[in-house]
Design a binder for these strands. Sequence first.
DNA 1: TTGTATGCGTTATCAC
DNA 2: GTGATAACGCATACAA
Lengths: 351, 351
Amino acid sequence: MPARRTPRRATIIEVARRAGVSIKTVSRVTNDEPNVRPGLRQKVARAVEELGYRPLQAARGLAARRSRLLALVYDNPSAAYLVRVQQAASLCAQEHGMRLLYHPCDHRDPQLAAALVLLSTQLRLEGIILVPPVSLDARVVAALEAADIPCALLAPAAAPAGACAVLLDDEGAARELTQHLLGLGHRRIGFVRGHDDHEASRARLAGFRQAMRRAGAVVDPGLVTAGDFTFEAGRRAGAQLLDRRVRPGAIIASNDDMAAGVIAAAHDRNVAIPAQLSVCGFDDTPVAGMLWPPLTTMHQPISELARSGTRLLLERIAGNSLPRTPSRLHYELVVRASTAAAPRDGVAGGP
Amino acid sequence: MPARRTPRRATIIEVARRAGVSIKTVSRVTNDEPNVRPGLRQKVARAVEELGYRPLQAARGLAARRSRLLALVYDNPSAAYLVRVQQAASLCAQEHGMRLLYHPCDHRDPQLAAALVLLSTQLRLEGIILVPPVSLDARVVAALEAADIPCALLAPAAAPAGACAVLLDDEGAARELTQHLLGLGHRRIGFVRGHDDHEASRARLAGFRQAMRRAGAVVDPGLVTAGDFTFEAGRRAGAQLLDRRVRPGAIIASNDDMAAGVIAAAHDRNVAIPAQLSVCGFDDTPVAGMLWPPLTTMHQPISELARSGTRLLLERIAGNSLPRTPSRLHYELVVRASTAAAPRDGVAGGP
DNA sequence: TTGTATGCGTTATCAC
DNA sequence: GTGATAACGCATACAA
């Protein structure tokens, strides 16, 4: 790739000449520094305007030995999730004069840690935001810490001491979702697990079990099925659960896409929702509202998660003291039309 | 925000000292330039390894007067669409030694053109990829051209001479989709329009009209409804169409989200799909497969669009000659279960 | 094949 | 308050 140099722009020197001042004064003005007489400031501002001068980031970064750059590292979560995270984090970074770089990756790549350290040194990153499941990788976090790169962990399994992290309460969320079904009289409740690489999968299942135990309900091991967060997995799990001799009266899927799969499996078998089967999802992604019937699901504050994480990271970079314990964000149950009271006996009838 | 300088890393000078060569030789090695004896190359490589040296992008960019940076400018299309574009474009850029910066924006912002020029000069961007509807904004394109910033337009309305663009064939796609319904015997076909800011909206409606005209079918103006690509708009449009005295036998929505809305409206009214109503979407986003019944829709090669556009931009930057006429990508009809033969008389029955 | 000297466009130091 | 001047870390003519 031959070098195609971009067109020349006005430099600080030309601005200084035009305004009849030194480059230092121009620098002061463009950086909003004090100690410049209003008159001079005006003159410089005018010269800047006339020449369309904009400080070059590369030069600025080199001289100041900082990049004003953060990176958002993720591995292909759902598009809806990802876009929310990107937007919230970008906005927050911008508000603090930083730029956010998006960095997709493969979270199972054994060289990921090294790659991130490399990226960080090449770009002189000032911090990194890790999106799950990357935020769960202890080796990555350790390598970044070792390389003295500040990072914020979004929804990690456990927050290492010193690392700044923002937590979700997937366990509590799953408990409440389960209680919603229990409150409707359901006892035979099926569960579709998420992908093992995600901490949320473990936590959601745990919350489900807790709520069941507390209610004195039995979790039939045959009603807990594997999944990986995809629609197809949900469909398979739904098929498996609905083809049992005695069907569950309700099914919780570990995310909305899988819940859509369960609903499809139910439609395939003419099982009426919510009359014969209640279905719950998780995450409250846009698809939840597009399904039929609209999906009861658990809303997780993804934007808030990203915003808080970014803010925390910026605080840390600025050297401010962080709260000792990471904050934990709150979920919210969104009841739509896919859940209803269980039939009297608490068990849905057979085919 | 106080400056928190990132930790010092090894510089090219230290590597040179350690390897016992000049910095020029180190530079040659890190840039894979010829004319270095294997022995020296080895020595330098070792020193690089031991010191964990990585050339700093900012310094490299400053000295070479180029950034190896492209920007992807978009305004909030659907998440699924966006993520596909991001991934394809990023990958293509990386393969050519470039980095891709994501730049969300408000496409109606009157200062967008200026903002992009600003961004470009600050970052010394080597090129910009415009995603619709930004690629439709003549002022933006003109401003970028005027500022001598190479840009690639994804699916613009019309490709300005000289600009590199990749086109979709929304008109043809809509024609084929309509023909699919006509082939099933439908004559009373409703249409839900997209957002006016998108060229695709116009083209899709035009294609629909063409196919109808060619088949000698009449387009009832009352069956062409407004929309804006959102689920809610689709639901409203669906309600409007289905509450008419004589219902359409089929409805084409200008994207999948709106088709989901139409389906929801049908479910609300106990209109069976596809027995009483056929529904088509557009784009073949993931939600199309999650709906019930699964949606017949028109697949547009979004990844290919982004990849081609990026490649074209890189060619242009490299100074290679471009094909005179922009390439036009091909759509593909995806028939699922939401469409079926029309009732005998070609008109669905009343409630 | 290898090295030297200069420049890239800013910020930062320290006199004035 | 303001301005010379030295970094910053690398690429690159040009010389050897």
